[in-house]
Computed example of a mutant assay.
Amino acid sequence: MANHKSALKRIRRNEAVRLRNRYQHKTVRNAIKKLRSEEDKKTALTLLPTVVGMIDKLAKRNIIHDNKASNLKSKLMKRVAAM
């Protein structure tokens, strides 16, 4: 167990950040699933910018890797364009 006050604070902080990152990542995954399951092109086109923005925000905060974000965005845009 940690002996220093700062180490205890770091443990609390890490847990809070981990839970926040987990929540944001799961929210984006659900949005991606919703976009992928969309059948109507018009609604997919309106959903796409918000999902892309969410993915960019995850990449900016280092929750996911930049390349993963690029791959996700590329696949989603291809899927919507092919509708």
Score class of each variant (00 low, 15 high):
residue 2 A to V: 10
residue 2 A to T: 04
residue 3 N to I: 12
residue 3 N to F: 13
residue 3 N to D: 09
residue 3 N to R: 12
residue 4 H to F: 02
residue 5 K to V: 08
residue 7 A to F: 00
residue 11 I to F: 06
residue 11 I to L: 12
residue 12 R to W: 03
residue 13 R to K: 05
residue 13 R to S: 12
residue 14 N to A: 15
residue 18 R to A: 12
residue 19 L to M: 11
residue 20 R to N: 12
residue 21 N to A: 08
residue 23 Y to A: 13
residue 26 K to I: 07
residue 26 K to N: 12
residue 26 K to V: 07
residue 27 T to I: 02
residue 29 R to M: 14
residue 31 A to C: 02
residue 31 A to D: 09
residue 32 I to H: 12
residue 32 I to E: 02
residue 32 I to K: 10
residue 38 E to S: 02
residue 38 E to L: 01
residue 40 D to K: 07
residue 40 D to H: 06
residue 41 K to W: 06
residue 41 K to V: 05
residue 42 K to E: 15
residue 43 T to L: 08
residue 43 T to N: 09
residue 44 A to G: 14
residue 46 T to P: 01
residue 47 L to W: 02
residue 50 T to K: 05
residue 51 V to F: 00
residue 54 M to Q: 15
residue 54 M to H: 03
residue 55 I to F: 11
residue 56 D to G: 14
residue 58 L to W: 14
residue 60 K to H: 13
residue 60 K to F: 10
residue 61 R to H: 14
residue 61 R to K: 13
residue 62 N to I: 02
residue 62 N to P: 01
residue 63 I to H: 06
residue 64 I to P: 01
residue 72 L to W: 10
residue 72 L to H: 05
residue 72 L to P: 05
residue 74 S to V: 04
residue 74 S to D: 04
residue 74 S to W: 00
residue 74 S to P: 02
residue 74 S to R: 09
residue 75 K to L: 05
residue 76 L to K: 00
residue 77 M to H: 06
residue 78 K to A: 14
residue 79 R to Y: 02
residue 79 R to F: 04
residue 79 R to V: 05
residue 80 V to S: 07
residue 80 V to T: 08
residue 81 A to P: 00
residue 81 A to Y: 03
residue 83 M to P: 01
